[in-house]
Design a protein around this nucleic acid. Sequence first.
DNA 1: TTCACAAATAATGTGCACATTCTCTAGACA
DNA 2: TGTCTAGAGAATGTGCACATTATTTGTGAA
Lengths: 279, 279
Amino acid sequence: MARRRAKTTARRRSPKGNVAIDDAVYGAIRQAMLSGRLRPGTKLQEPVLARLLKVSRERVRKALHRLVHERWLEAVPNRGTFVPAPSVEELRELYEVRGILEDAVVARLARVTANGSAQKLRAHVAEERSAVKSGDRSRLFGLSTEFHALLAELSGNEQLSRTLRTLLPRSSLHFSLFAPPALHNCAGPHDHGDIVKAVLAGDTDKARALMRQHLAGLVELLSAREEAPENLTLEEVFLPERGPPGPLMNLDAGGSRFTATLEARGPARKRRAAKAARL
Amino acid sequence: MARRRAKTTARRRSPKGNVAIDDAVYGAIRQAMLSGRLRPGTKLQEPVLARLLKVSRERVRKALHRLVHERWLEAVPNRGTFVPAPSVEELRELYEVRGILEDAVVARLARVTANGSAQKLRAHVAEERSAVKSGDRSRLFGLSTEFHALLAELSGNEQLSRTLRTLLPRSSLHFSLFAPPALHNCAGPHDHGDIVKAVLAGDTDKARALMRQHLAGLVELLSAREEAPENLTLEEVFLPERGPPGPLMNLDAGGSRFTATLEARGPARKRRAAKAARL
DNA sequence: TTCACAAATAATGTGCACATTCTCTAGACA
DNA sequence: TGTCTAGAGAATGTGCACATTATTTGTGAA
């Protein structure tokens, strides 16, 4: 008994730091999704993730449950947890709801802009432009999604922001599948600048119209489904590129800002035939 | 080892029936909240609930986590799980978001009404009237909330319905605290009939206006805070009235329809001074 | 070769024991 | 009498062992 006691006490990292570990695991998986590395249909196996992230399986379980509740992932009883593959019809419905909410967001925002909002919005658009220039698709995926979260956050209604945020993961997912190769020509990032301009000019009608067009443009992409690239294995997704065998994870805690650690990282090498769970 | 093995096998109810137990626990707590018996600030202790509902503590834990994720409850790390007590400001924001969404709901519904919708809506309104007549406050609480869920469900956009549903628990909570004694004079149930009438008549503008007024009326109630009645103990909330010492719970599985088992039950007797966790 | 079926393997799900943290009470001291 | 502190008790949090379920592999006959 004494032996076991010592073991468990040693294993436990720190009295208060457990939530940090939980957030790190949660953040790592969410990052992988936002970056587009985790493709729809991929199965997230608890033992594999526990090994790769160097945490106990219970930690992984907890993070997966949380992500399922937030609709980032889907759970099938006794089968496992999967990256969702929403149908086109479901995506259309999601974008309709987003339109309803985001219309209200830009309307509020064009009416009264809190101080500091302008700067944040311009900075974000600039960051998107830089991501387009450098051709960093993963980074742009995250930024494009976060743009809408940022708008909602600045609208001043926290509940509105929360509600919209629940819709973003699922509706953004398909971008890793559908996005055309030429990013700078696509409807997405270019529109964001115009929306910001209209909002900051206080032109409510124009801002609303632009947002409506923007979302409609995203829905358009749904029809033009492309060849889906091969899935990656969990190792390729979660192991740092050519890193040392077992580095302690140094991911951010995954707070409300989730673009921090999206550093530029080269394209994954040695593509392997992943099994790609069916679902 | 053999002893333990036999024990666990016997304890486990059935191979497939575990989800049913989970849903029953989840439904029981949600029922108690919808009926208004669980008041804001009440602490839900895992061992107590496990004893009262005759399930293992893990089952209670799981249900509580689920309810926290769905914003029915609030969790404080290392402290416990509580019935939330949202601020008036937060409630205002919630009702603003509800207004945005429910405006779209009635607009959609007035434009195209699926067959069968009219019957369901009329039946629901009739049920509310009967609850008012019989003075059953608990039943009316649940029905009033579910009216809005029903409207959204009939709107045809499942994502819209889902999204609105996440806002209902938290925004409806205060009714158990604020509702005036004379229910039939209150703004709530009377309006529902008018909204249904306008929707079924296809009068989009009127339906939207009525919904807007209805929600505004609910917000009005926030200002008129009343004396909060005493809290009930968990025993008084979850133990059936004067029932046998340990009856197996026969609650419904807590599916999408949550008004089924809201049977008429007399007011709780032997009110006792509950500690009412602070939070 | 192909299909069906059974064993093996590996995943997910869950009860339990224990660690940790918080709460509440009793008592000392100002 | 009031406040602070230490300790007992009870609640929440978590690692682990094991049960259950799903998937894959292997073997046989048609």
